[in-house]
């Protein structure tokens, strides 16, 4: 059995890492500009606004306009970030993301915070459970879902240097810290965190830490589970998925609708490369509800125990 070499420690929220990294990027280049829709204190772009007020564009509560203003800035050569809650920037700004960023291939940087259901008390109108699907449907967009602060900071830098449009998904809740500062990241290259021989757990965002916890739960029952952090959802790492299929059982976990997130993209790759048994953990064709983040994640089944149970189902199916 391979020991879980990643020790999970309490960390900060990916939205906070986004805001802090934005300030660093702003110091490094005067071309970095930020558009906000009256949520800068929640998205942490207020840090950028404080240091670079002339490069911070308050758009008011008008996400459609904000996206196209950002696209105009990016068309004129700026490194333009637009940010809001993921539910608002993706859903209210989708038409503008399509026509002013994706279609003309304008390198707009879109960051959606408060994604998934771990926003908790605010409830379903603010919970973004379809953002991965929407962002992946835009030709030319690269789509990222970092798992902790270190990966958010690294992916922010990769996305900034990337010549095309990007969507980065961030969360409200504090994460468990996974990576050390020495960890390197590459667009489209998943990180194989743990090697296992019975089942591989593929995840993005906060479900990576839950998958790592599930490794220990499964090990206690003599099951060897691997973990893959799919921080880039698009372009997807086909080789990592195909390698995972060698053990014959996969669980894909995400804080997103299972109907249209990472899971179906993994299944698509597998159907083309190496068909494999897959179980899915995510939000099942429903909207969640208010509650503390922990209570909501428990009720809607986005926990290590749910992943471990799915892993056992997959292994049982594999053994016939």
């Amino acid at each position: 059995m391979v020991a879980n070499k990643f020790e999970l420690k309490p960390g900060g929220a990916t939205r906070e890492a986004f805001g802090k990294t934005l300030v660093e990027l702003g110091r490094e280049s005067k071309d970095v500009v930020v558009c906000d829709a009256d949520l800068s204190k929640s998205t942490y772009t207020h840090l950028f606004a404080k240091e670079f007020p002339e490069r911070f564009f308050s758009c008011g509560i008008a996400e459609s306009n904000m996206v196209a203003i950002g696209a105009g800035l990016a068309s004129a050569g700026k490194t333009a970030f637009v940010s809001s809650f993921s539910a608002f920037v993706l859903n209210k700004g989708f038409e503008q993301l399509r026509v002013t960023a994706a279609y003309p291939n304008v390198p707009l940087k879109v960051v959606g915070t408060h994604s998934g259901i771990s926003i908790g008390e605010d409830g379903p109108s603010q919970m973004s459970i379809e953002d991965i699907s929407l962002a992946c449907s835009l030709p030319g967009f690269s789509v990222f879902s970092p798992a902790d602060e270190v990966s958010m900071a690294a992916i922010m830098r990769l996305a900034t240097a990337h010549p095309g449009p990007v969507f980065i998904r961030a969360g409200r809740a504090k994460t468990l810290s996974i990576y050390g500062p020495e960890q390197t990241f590459e667009i489209g290259k998943a990180i194989e965190l743990v090697t296992g021989t019975d089942v591989v757990l593929i995840a993005h965002g906060l479900m990576v830490a839950e998958s790592l916890k599930a490794v220990d739960l499964l090990a206690a029952e003599g099951i060897s589970a691997g973990v893959v952090d799919m921080h880039t959802i698009k372009p997807i790492d086909r080789d990592a998925i195909t390698r995972a299929a060698q053990v014959g059982a996969i669980v894909v976990s995400e804080e997103h609708l299972v109907d249209c997130g990472l899971g179906v993209r993994v299944a698509q790759v597998l159907s083309e490369t190496k068909p494999c048994i897959v179980e899915y953990v995510g939000v099942e064709n429903t909207y969640a509800e208010s509650g503390t983040p922990d209570a909501v994640l428990d009720k809607y089944g986005l926990r290590a125990a749910n992943i471990a149970a799915a892993a056992k189902r997959a292994i049982a199916r594999k053994r016939g």
């Binding site: 500009v33 002339e54 490069r55 564009f57 459609s64 306009n65 996206v67 196209a68 203003i69 950002g70 696209a71 105009g72 800035l73 990016a74 068309s75 004129a76 050569g77 700026k78 333009a80 038409e95 503008q96 026509v99 002013t100």
Partner: peptide, 16 residues
């Protein structure tokens, strides 16, 4: 409905 926003974004860039 999208062109005015784009033009204004370009105007922001020019001013900066």
């Amino acid at each position: 409905g999208e062109g005015l926003s784009l033009g204004l974004g370009m105007a922001c860039a020019a001013r900066l």
